[in-house]
Simulated scan of single mutants.
Amino acid sequence: MQTLAAQPGIRVNLAELIEMRHRVREVQLFSTAARRSPLIGLHHSKLRGRGVDFDQVRVYQAGDDVRTIDWRVTARTQEPHTKMFHEERERPIYIMVEQSQRLFFSTGLMFKSVLAAQAASLIGWAALGHNDRVGGLVFGDNEHHEIKPRRSKQSLLQLLSRLARANQALPGDPNAGRDSFGLALRRAREILRPGSLAVIICDERTLNDSSEQQLALLARHCDVLLLPLSDPLDHALPAAGLLRFAESGAKLELDTHNADLRRAYHEQAQARQARWERLALKLRVPLLALDTQREMVDQLRDHLNGSRASK
Score class of each variant (00 low, 15 high):
R162D: 12
I200Q: 11
T77R: 15
P286M: 10
R178V: 01
Q61W: 02
H22W: 08
L226H: 05
D231Q: 02
K83Q: 12
R205L: 13
R133F: 00
R91W: 03
D64Q: 09
Q56K: 13
A166F: 11
H130L: 08
L226A: 02
G249E: 07
E143N: 09
S100N: 09
Q213Y: 13
C222W: 03
V134N: 06
A250I: 05
A250W: 12
I10M: 10
E212V: 07
E190P: 00
Q56T: 13
P232T: 10
D70N: 14
K251Q: 14
F245G: 10
R165V: 10
A62G: 06
Q158C: 03
R91H: 02
L42A: 00
N13M: 03
R25T: 07
W71C: 05
A119D: 05
P171Y: 04
A188I: 06
R67K: 13
S196L: 08
S230T: 06
R294E: 15
D223S: 09
A198P: 00
V12A: 08
K83G: 00
Q101T: 11
F181Q: 13
V57H: 09
N175M: 06
L128F: 01
L237W: 07
V285C: 14
L218P: 00
Q158K: 14
C202A: 15
E204I: 08
S180W: 05
S100H: 04
A274F: 05
R91I: 01
F30K: 03
H266I: 00
R294H: 14
A15R: 13
V57K: 07
A188H: 03
V285K: 06
Q118H: 15
F181D: 04
L217Q: 15
H86C: 03
A216T: 15
S180C: 14
I10G: 01
F54C: 07
F104Q: 04
P228R: 04
L183C: 10
L197H: 06
V52D: 01
D53R: 12
E98I: 03
S211R: 12
G63I: 04
N167M: 05
W125N: 02
K112W: 05
D203S: 13
R50Q: 13
L242G: 01
A119H: 04
D179M: 08
A289Y: 07
L29Q: 08
I10A: 11
I95A: 02
A176F: 06
I201V: 14
H235D: 15
L237V: 09
R244F: 08
H130K: 14
R25S: 13
H43Y: 03
